[in-house]
C-alpha cells in the first residue's frame, strides 16, 4: 500500500516537473521576436556554447575516427575488403557516432555549464532582479541559450564526423596503407545524402533540443543553494546522456529499421 502511494507521489512529481519544464520552454520560445535585442545575445551564446566546445569535439572526433579505422582494418583485411574502410568509417560516424558522441560531449561540456550558470544566477537573485526590472528572464537568459544550443550542436556533429573521417584516413591510408583512391571513391558512392547525412543531422537536431532543454530547465528549476546547483548539474549530464541514448535507439529504428 505504502509502495503504491510512493509510486503515485513519484509519478506526480515527475509530471509536475514535466509541466514546469514545458512552461519554461514555452515561456522562452513563444513570444514576439525582438531580433535587434536577441540575435546579438544568441550569437554570444553560440560562441560560449558552440565555439568553446570545438576543441573537445575536434580532438574526440579525430581519435574516434582513428580507432575506428584501426578496428575496422583488422576485421576487413581478413576478407580482403579493406577497400571498404572508407564507407565503414563514414557511415558509422554520420549515422551514429557523430550525433551521439557529440551530444554526450555537449551535455558534459556545455549542458552542465548552462545549468550551473543559470542556477547560480537564480541563487544570487539575478533572475529575480531581472523580473523586477520587467525583463523576462525566460526570454533574456533562457531563450538565447536554447537557440544557441540548437544551432551549435548539429554543426558540431558535422564537424565531428568530418574530422573523424580525416582521422580514419590518417590511420587507414597513411599508416596501414589502404588505397587512398578507394577510401574516398567508395565512400562517395556509398554514402547517400538523404539516407545518411540528413538523417544524422535530424538526429543531432533532436539531441540538441533535448540536451539544451534539460540543461536550461535544470538550471532554472534548481534549488538555489550550492547543493541544489551541484545536484542539478549532475542531473543534467545524467538525464541528457540517458535521453540521447534512448532517443538514438528510437530514431535509428524509425530511420533505418526494416
Amino acid at each position: 500500500m505504502e509502495w503504491f502511494a510512493r509510486l503515485g507521489a513519484g509519478t506526480l512529481d515527475k509530471l509536475s516537473a514535466f509541466g514546469r519544464a514545458t512552461f519554461v520552454l514555452l515561456g522562452a520560445v513563444v513570444a514576439k521576436p525582438r531580433p535587434l535585442k536577441h540575435i546579438p545575445l544568441t550569437i554570444k551564446q553560440i560562441y560560449v556554447v558552440g565555439v568553446q566546445s570545438l576543441s573537445i569535439i575536434i580532438v574526440s572526433g579525430l581519435f574516434i575516427g582513428m580507432v575506428m579505422a584501426l578496428q575496422g582494418y583488422t576485421i576487413l583485411v581478413d576478407y580482403g575488403a579493406e577497400g571498404s574502410l572508407g564507407p565503414m568509417v563514414a557511415l558509422s560516424l554520420l549515422r551514429e557516432l557523430g550525433p551521439v558522441v557529440t551530444a554526450l560531449l555537449f551535455a558534459g561540456r556545455a549542458g552542465s555549464a548552462l545549468t550551473a550558470e543559470i542556477g547560480l544566477m537564480k541563487a544570487t537573485e539575478q533572475l529575480s532582479s531581472l523580473e523586477m526590472m520587467a525583463v523576462d528572464p525566460l526570454r533574456r537568459i533562457v531563450a538565447p541559450r536554447l537557440w544557441a544550443g540548437m544551432i551549435s550542436m548539429p554543426l558540431l556533429a558535422l564537424i565531428f564526423s568530418a574530422v573523424g573521417i580525416l582521422g580514419g584516413h590518417l590511420v587507414g591510408v597513411d599508416w596501414l596503407g589502404v588505397d587512398a583512391g578507394s577510401y574516398w571513391s567508395i565512400m562517395q558512392s556509398t554514402v547517400e545524402w538523404n539516407e545518411d547525412v540528413l538523417n544524422g543531422v535530424i538526429k543531432s537536431i533532436v539531441f540538441a533540443f533535448v540536451c539544451t532543454w534539460i540543461a536550461i530547465f535544470k538550471g532554472y528549476d534548481a534549488v538555489p543553494t550550492s547543493e541544489g546547483i551541484s545536484l542539478a548539474t549532475t542531473q543534467t549530464v545524467v538525464y541528457s546522456s540517458l535521453a540521447v541514448l534512448g532517443l538514438d535507439f528510437v530514431l535509428t529504428a524509425l530511420m533505418f529499421g526494416i
Binding site: 539575478q126 529575480s128 532582479s129 523580473e131 523586477m132 520587467a134
Partner: peptide, 29 residues
C-alpha cells in the same frame, strides 16, 4: 511586467549581473 517598469527594487544581496561591468549593470535598465 508593465507595472514593474514603474517600480524598482534594491535587493538585499545587490544582485548585480556578474557577467557585466558596473557601468553596463547600471546602463542595463
Amino acid at each position: 511586467f508593465t507595472v514593474r517598469r514603474q517600480m524598482s527594487m534594491l535587493f538585499q544581496s545587490g544582485a548585480l549581473f556578474t557577467d557585466m561591468t558596473v557601468f553596463d549593470n547600471i546602463a542595463f535598465p
